[in-house]
Design a protein around this nucleic acid. Structure first.
Lengths: 202, 202, 202, 202
DNA sequence: GATGAATGAGGGTTCATTCAT
DNA sequence: GATGAATGAACCCTCATTCAT
């Protein structure tokens, strides 16, 4: 039995509980719609699927990027947090990098249209872009540096371009079964691993 | 004043001349607009720039993809035709492949938004997609096979996925100066190249 | 006199104290917002500035007009109360009228968008309209009558139309520096002062 | 059977005839809607009343101001063109001014909400504003100058402020039968008129 | 054949107002 | 009483595509 103070706390919390539940409903709905129609799906569709009004969606997620970011925040976090552990546990720094990129690719490839959104030059996804890079680029950079330091990867490649290249390779995975991003990514990593033209490029 | 017969013939011929001229005007206009606003530019804009009606544009190019294809047909042709020559003239099959991919990348990277269009999963660009593959995939395949046969490239990579990977890497080149597709493509090719010393590939 | 009732009364009173404080907060906030964004500013903005919930605002001021009225009640009062004093103290009844209209114009011109609101034909400002007229029209009428009785103003002009005319002239003062309502109002008053067409109009 | 030239001309003209008819339909519909719901009425409503698509309306009148301007263009023209004639035909320059303002007021008062629109500080009506002033201010200025030169009107009043004052006085005519803009405008003009007997103004 | 006017679906966004907590 | 989340009507605007002339 709550005291008055607790009651107040409870009521304050219960209100928020509603909103939180709603927010979760929205996230779930958005996730489903993103899978079905891509991250560019009409806002209305998401609100409808969530069974809430348009305004509610706008209240919780003022821009589309906010919604996308929120939907994938957990996975971005997980990806970011996995980095150090991999570095510690893998057979070699390059292996850690490879495993991390596996995670990254899993993530991108699972989410319909997410890789596309990350490339969109419009500012509709600006904040998503920002969040992505802010969170993941340092992790990628650390792994890449370690591999370079260990002599396993060629120097001179920036984490930004690597992430973006990987991201690009993941675009449009659904459209044709003949295209499996992972195979191309494997090639890219192989190229990264190789010492720069071991004597016989020309 | 033409006679009836002459008039008919003349008018038919003159119309065709008109049509041809119109088509060329449209291609030129489209090329300009594509550069300025990407291959996704509003149809009207192209018609307006060409100084013809919308219907005329639609008559000549029923879908956007038809227009894009037509605009770049010459370059696609050139790219396709260059293949055999490179194979004959290059230091090695792999080198020929590399040079050909250079041409391909030049092409994609020059055309604002073309690489993006090639990935678009909508059917808006379906015929472009088709034409691209029909024409270039055999060429790429020939070069790739030669490199594999020569022991310079690892086997098991399909021309489709290679072309698509390259294409993907070219996406969004304009959006950030930190990203240069060619660097990633170089990595990919390095990964594709078979190591000189057998057994070292692991 | 209730005992148990005292407790109840006390709690009622404490709540009322809260409510009163809230009401004042809202009035202050509204005044600021009105200045910044006009009397048509979004309701939320006012609630937000006051740091109270939307419902609270609605409870205190069910319509926008109620809020506007309340915000400017003091000044309406002051304007109303100034009338008799001016009549007593001015050099002539017409001078008193002129001075009173000066006050009135000061008031309208200071409040961003208030003059506009007074004209709005929608019913959004109905109660404001009512309050304004109920309170000020008699005052204006008294001054006007006095000027007419003194032979200083032409007869036949109703206080309503005079106030409304003045109000109208104050609309949109901010939009163009070339327009100074007072100059036109001076003309209007000059016209009011003149005997009707001194000999040669008709 | 028309000749080729005629046919071409006819067909070109007939096409335009259609568009022109449509444009007229739109103007008529807009005029009706403006009367019924004011010049701020939803765009859709006008399109619907005209029985055309939204896009058609937008094609003909890209902004709301364009539509309003077009709807009232004839009357603006008539008003502008009447100026010189009045000056020539009236008993005195001031009389000409008075008559012209009568026309102006007739115009404003007839059009529901037009006077309001002219004050709107938003840019939604910017081009209307511009057109109004460009066309009418010179005319008003000419009449005013003439009256001043004839010693009938006091100097120092700008046509802009006069027109705007008149316009303001016309606002909201519909809302209350007690308010007749013309009575206030008459007062204003009386105030503008220079007293006959010099020295009596003082 | 060419034209471009017309169509209207489609998507974004704002805000007054209600009502469960 | 206070709160502010939810609602959804109401607007605006763009463009691909069709079709009468």
């Amino acid at each position: 039995m709550p005291t008055a103070g607790q009651a107040k706390g409870a009521s304050a919390r219960s209100k928020r509980a509603d909103a939180v539940r709603n927010q979760q409903t929205l996230l779930d709905a958005a996730a489903e719609v993103f899978v079905a129609s891509g991250v560019d799906a009409p806002i209305r569709e998401i609100a409808a699927r969530a069974g809430v009004g348009l305004g509610t969606l706008y209240r919780h997620f003022p821009t589309r990027a906010d919604l996308v970011t929120a939907v994938y925040r957990h996975q971005i976090e997980a990806c970011a947090e996995a980095g150090p552990g991999l570095l510690a546990g893998a057979a070699s720094p390059f292996d850690a990098l490879r495993q991390w990129i596996d995670l990254f690719v899993d993530f991108l490839v699972t989410k319909h249209g997410l890789a596309d959104a990350l490339q969109s030059d419009t500012d509709r996804f600006a904040s998503l872009h920002t969040h992505f890079l802010d969170r993941l680029m340092p992790v990628c950079g650390q792994l890449l540096d370690a591999a370079v330091d260990a002599g396993e990867a060629r120097a001179g490649i920036q984490p930004y371009e690597l992430m973006r290249g990987i991201g690009n390779l993941c675009i449009g995975r659904d459209s044709d079964p003949r295209y499996d991003p992972r195979r191309m990514i494997a090639l890219l990593l192989e190229g990264l691993r190789r010492p720069h033209s071991p004597g016989g490029d020309g």
